[in-house]
């Protein structure tokens, strides 16, 4: 019998530590599939975040660096400048990329660094126990916004992708969503596009991935996917932003 679905070469043979229904496992695989399909596993250098995906480097089967919380794009800037022929990407959550690392994010984008960014938006801080994130929705309850996010107290969900799209140094921004198989397929195309853009020297590319966190949304995995569709996508509409 022919084997039609197998482990990517760019994934290592390790069980992932993520919670049931978490989107990170899918997003990791999409990155690995894109790297495999582009045939650049041995030319790839990933930069992992601080957050739930901190040990992404254990799951990918190519060179990787850790970065301090929020600094992934500064680290990646230097790696890419030193190795301009390699595929260099960061994989960052919303707290990492859009709170503590906003400065590094905006300036790497504004310099037009020829990098690819996979930005996982799950609207909470996962690793630390589900606190308010810059992307937490209005009304969404977290351990540090116990009555729900209120605009008077916490401000609004930060649309960092739209902000970045306004910068002339940015070539490509797309928001995708892991709420359904069709959404996953679109996400895969976007991730591969972001990598291909870099290989074509086109500049800064970012894919924002709306990703489920059933644990800290207090929902079943199935209900979490429905919540992305019914609630999250209203605030963060999917599609090509730039």
């Amino acid at each position: 019998m022919e084997k039609i679905f197998k482990r990517c070469q760019s994934l290592s043979d390790l069980p992932m530590h993520y919670c049931p229904g978490c989107g990170h496992g899918i997003a990791h695989r999409l990155v690995a599939e894109a790297v495999d399909e582009l045939g650049v596993r041995e030319e790839t250098i990933g930069v992992a975040p601080v957050g739930c995906a901190v040990v992404a480097y254990d799951y990918w089967n190519f060179d990787c660096s850790e970065a301090a919380h929020g600094r992934a794009l500064a680290v990646a800037t230097a790696i890419k400048r030193v190795h301009p022929q390699k595929l260099v990407f960061t994989y960052q959550g919303d707290g990492d990329l859009a709170a503590i690392g906003t400065n590094e994010t905006i300036h790497a984008a504004n310099r037009g660094e020829n990098l690819s960014v996979i930005f996982i938006n799950n609207a909470v801080y996962g690793m630390t126990g589900g606190q308010l994130a810059p992307t937490t929705l209005l009304g969404q309850k977290t351990s540090t916004s116990v009555d729900g996010r209120q605009k008077q107290l916490h401000g609004y969900p930060l649309k960092i992708s739209e902000i970045l799209a306004a910068l002339p140094g940015v070539y490509y921004v797309e928001r995708v969503s892991l709420e359904s198989p069709a959404g996953v397929l679109k996400a895969k195309r976007a991730v591969k596009q972001a990598f291909q853009n870099q290989l074509n020297n086109l500049g800064f590319s970012l894919v924002e991935v709306l990703s489920p966190c059933p644990t800290y949304w207090g929902l079943s995995p199935q209900a979490a996917l429905q919540w992305i569709k019914d609630v999250m996508q209203k605030e963060f509409p999917v599609g090509r932003i730039k």
């Binding site: 250098i45 660096s65 929020g70 500064a74 680290v75 230097a78 400048r81 030193v82 590094e104 300036h107």
Partner: peptide, 25 residues
């Protein structure tokens, strides 16, 4: 390679990235 960073936080992280990539940083 010379980079004027956006902050000292970024500067030292760029040094980290360059050193990780094998450069004398």
């Amino acid at each position: 390679i010379f980079v004027q960073a956006e902050s000292e936080l970024a500067a030292i992280s760029m040094v980290y990235g360059a050193a990780a990539a094998g450069a004398r940083a």
